[in-house]
Design a protein around this nucleic acid. Structure first.
Lengths: 103, 103
DNA sequence: CAGACTATTAGCAATTGTGTTAATAGTATG
DNA sequence: CATACTATTAACACAATTGCTAATAGTCTG
């Protein structure tokens, strides 16, 4: 929910790659560790960052923990930020005071 | 142009605030330093990060340097990433190999 | 329940990011 | 040209990030 957590999570190449993989299918830690060269602990912590931002949800299935992308949250955050950047001046000539909201 | 530079630039609260201010009007370093409590050198370096990412362009006017938001680049990058995340599977059932492009 | 497999946490090293103040550079003006 | 003002760079301190390996925890299976 926190835009700072979200953009913080998106600022890492491995995490954006994880997002890209999860945009196709749900995967476990070791699944992901096998796809690009990172140790399982590193993947696990990246997933924790993504999860704290709400970008990913986890579901245990037996020994494995499946991670799934929360597409709606991600796209919603991007859209919200984009519309904030698109400018109050564009969408509403009034109320152009401090543009802190949604940033 | 580099998505990593762009998301790296967006991962900082002060920089997103700078973007928010510049989304309304072009401003100089000291203009920005006056709006939220950061020293001019700090602002200057944040602006350099934004400029390296292409998110901002500068234009000297007398003693001042005016910074202007490159809205098109920013919105374009957000849209490109959003559509990549929206999934090749959604937009095209074929060609769902490695989703490295646009990430 | 012992062993195997998966996931996470702990501890550590190296790097990067972010702020400060001080110093330097560029530009206008009296 | 000396002074003032704006912007940037330098040097430094501190916190946060990111990777690893080793250790711990949770879950199935023989």
């Amino acid at each position: 929910m926190d835009l700072d957590d979200i953009f913080g999570a998106l600022s890492s190449v491995p995490r954006r790659q994880i997002i890209a993989f999860l945009s196709q299918t749900a995967l476990s830690t070791t699944d992901l560790a096998g796809r690009f060269l990172l140790s399982p602990p590193a993947i696990s912590r990246h997933l924790a960052v993504l999860q704290r931002a709400g970008l990913v949800v986890s579901e245990r299935q037996g020994q494995r923990v499946l991670y799934r992308l929360n597409r709606d949250l991600l796209l919603g955050a991007l859209a919200r930020f984009a519309s904030a950047v698109d400018g109050p001046l564009r969408r509403d000539a009034q109320a152009a005071r401090t543009p802190r909201e949604a940033i």
